[in-house]
Write a protein that binds this DNA or RNA. Structure first.
Lengths: 148, 148
DNA sequence: ATTTCTGCAAATGCTTTGCATTGCA
DNA sequence: TGCAATGCAAAGCATTTGCAGAAAT
């Protein structure tokens, strides 16, 4: 196992406070923030930080493989420091993205090979997204239903 | 079963040549085109058509449930008149999006319920994306490998 | 006849780019 | 010190919006 600093230096990418800060936000948070969200979280500690730097940083971290990009639609890309295969669930109402610690075993072995054979593609990775409404956003509706 | 015209009229949405043309492109094509691609395909037959109209039309068709939006990343949304559950494979090199007529049965019943229980979400739909390189884009590489 | 839609052009908003300054190695 | 990164502002693009004229019901 290597530290983030080592991984960056090995690829001749300079280790800067901004880059470490962006990675640290992503590593800590379970919210799968967008670039704008990362920027807002960093502002108190790095008042001079530029939004452009956050864009450039997530791009680099993505290319190096330290983070993955999630595409939940509705406009914004989200970033995730968890790069092991797992799936995501997105709330259509509040935009929250939550990890789903379930990844169909079927998807990891025989089915992938079958699909590669059928389509002729070489499969690099799989993204599985669930879309729905989260418990918090459901609350009102459920209470209304229960009382009617 | 209802015709597209009937479905639109029922929802008080006017049936226009532009709307039918956009739907027809999506129904016919297996390419999962973007808004820009749809616009380019329509230009010869509808030289006056506006790009804004295509944007507005896919939005309406999506809301009515006649088409689905695919989010393959790399910037552009794609549209698909096939609304039954199926998955998609996207070529990272040429951007092609192809249907995968395989949808893990696991995903449709017990697993969904389990995930709903674990997360508290109400799941509305699932998107499964495979990312990789298509046979055409692989060709060169494979030939090189074979001859080395 | 009324209502909605189209097409144009302008506006918006997210993301990228260019470049002088700053800072890591 | 030298090269790369930052931060700012401007540019770029995809998408949305407003509205007058056109078309559908």
């Amino acid at each position: 196992m290597h530290t983030v600093e080592e991984i960056l230096r090995k690829k001749k990418i300079k280790v800067t406070p901004q880059r470490m800060a962006v990675y640290s936000i992503l590593k800590k948070s379970k919210f799968h923030p967008s670039v704008e969200m990362i920027y807002q979280k960093l502002k108190p500690d790095y008042p001079a930080m530029s939004l452009a730097t956050v864009y450039k940083t997530v791009d680099i971290l993505k290319k190096v493989g330290l983070i993955q990009e999630l595409n939940v639609g509705d406009g914004g890309l989200r970033y995730d420091a968890q790069v092991k295969p797992h799936s995501h669930i997105y709330c259509k109402k509040c935009g929250k993205v939550v990890d789903v610690n379930h990844f169909p075993g079927e998807l990891q072995d025989s089915l992938l090979k079958k699909i590669e054979e059928e389509t002729g593609f070489d499969i690099l990775f799989v993204q599985l997204y669930f879309f729905g409404t989260c418990p918090e956003c459901n609350n009102n509706k459920k209470l209304l239903k229960a009382s009617s």
